[in-house]
Computed example of a mutant assay.
Amino acid sequence: MSRWHRIRHALVTPELIYGTIMSSAVIAVAESDDDDFDVFVVTIVTMLVFWAAHVFATAVANHGVRGGRIIGIGQAFRDGVHHSKGLLYASVVPLVFLILGATGVLDETVGYFVALLVGMVVLGILGWMAFADRGSPWPVRLLGSIGTALFGLVIVVLKAVLH
């Protein structure tokens, strides 16, 4: 497997995509009077809770006998941590912009909106990578990237509206 494929398969996971949508939705539903630090704290706590729930669910689901092999709770937990890391990775970049806004390095409004925008950019990059992996020409990659980002935006808006 080429280096590109290893990177792509390490990065483009359902957990990273779902985590990107979740962190964007949490940021989107922040109260208008919340400052960036409050949004930062709510986002990090929410993502940690979702990550812990995902680790737990994966560990419970994988504990026992799988494919004729006994998987102990320790191994199932380690597998859950490994499998779920994308949920945590997804919120790193938006959290950086929120903390930059909270500390005054960026204007708070700029930090907030960049934190929201970066999620769609990440989804667009992931879409580009997925189409590139299939060997699609660059125009198809670009359309796939835009489509992925826009679909992610629709999901974030729906999650925010339904919150």
Rank of each mutant, 00 (worst) to 15 (best):
residue 156 V to Y: 06
residue 97 F to V: 05
residue 91 S to D: 08
residue 86 G to W: 04
residue 114 V to T: 08
residue 124 G to N: 03
residue 92 V to F: 09
residue 150 L to C: 08
residue 26 V to T: 11
residue 97 F to I: 03
residue 132 A to D: 10
residue 80 G to M: 04
residue 5 H to M: 10
residue 65 V to R: 11
residue 95 L to W: 02
residue 28 A to T: 10
residue 145 S to Y: 00
residue 111 G to S: 11
residue 148 T to H: 11
residue 24 S to V: 03
residue 163 H to Y: 14
residue 157 V to H: 12
residue 41 V to M: 12
residue 137 P to F: 03
residue 53 A to Q: 09
residue 56 F to Y: 15
residue 71 I to R: 12
residue 57 A to M: 12
residue 97 F to C: 02
residue 20 T to C: 12
residue 130 A to L: 09
residue 11 L to Y: 04
residue 92 V to N: 06
residue 72 G to M: 08
residue 133 D to C: 04
residue 73 I to N: 12
residue 43 T to I: 05
residue 54 H to I: 02
residue 131 F to T: 08
residue 136 S to V: 13
residue 3 R to T: 13
residue 37 F to C: 02
residue 140 V to L: 14
residue 94 P to D: 06
residue 79 D to P: 04
residue 114 V to Y: 01
residue 85 K to T: 15
residue 52 A to K: 02
residue 64 G to H: 04
residue 133 D to Q: 12
residue 53 A to R: 08
residue 158 L to E: 05
residue 147 G to I: 00
residue 95 L to T: 10
residue 10 A to R: 05
residue 103 T to P: 02
residue 37 F to I: 09
residue 17 I to A: 13
residue 91 S to V: 14
residue 128 W to M: 05
residue 90 A to Q: 02
residue 75 Q to L: 12
residue 130 A to I: 10
residue 110 V to R: 02
residue 134 R to Q: 15
residue 87 L to R: 02
residue 34 D to E: 13
residue 11 L to R: 01
residue 8 R to E: 14
residue 141 R to H: 05
residue 17 I to Q: 04
residue 9 H to R: 12
residue 97 F to E: 00
residue 157 V to Q: 11
residue 82 H to Y: 13
residue 92 V to E: 07
residue 120 M to S: 14
residue 161 V to G: 06
residue 50 F to M: 10
residue 90 A to K: 00
residue 33 D to Y: 11
residue 23 S to I: 07
residue 15 E to A: 08
residue 60 V to N: 06
residue 76 A to R: 05
residue 17 I to G: 03
residue 125 I to V: 14
residue 142 L to M: 12
residue 160 A to E: 07
residue 2 S to V: 08
residue 117 L to V: 08
residue 35 D to Y: 00
residue 56 F to C: 12
residue 72 G to F: 09
residue 41 V to E: 10
residue 86 G to F: 02
residue 43 T to E: 08
residue 69 R to D: 08
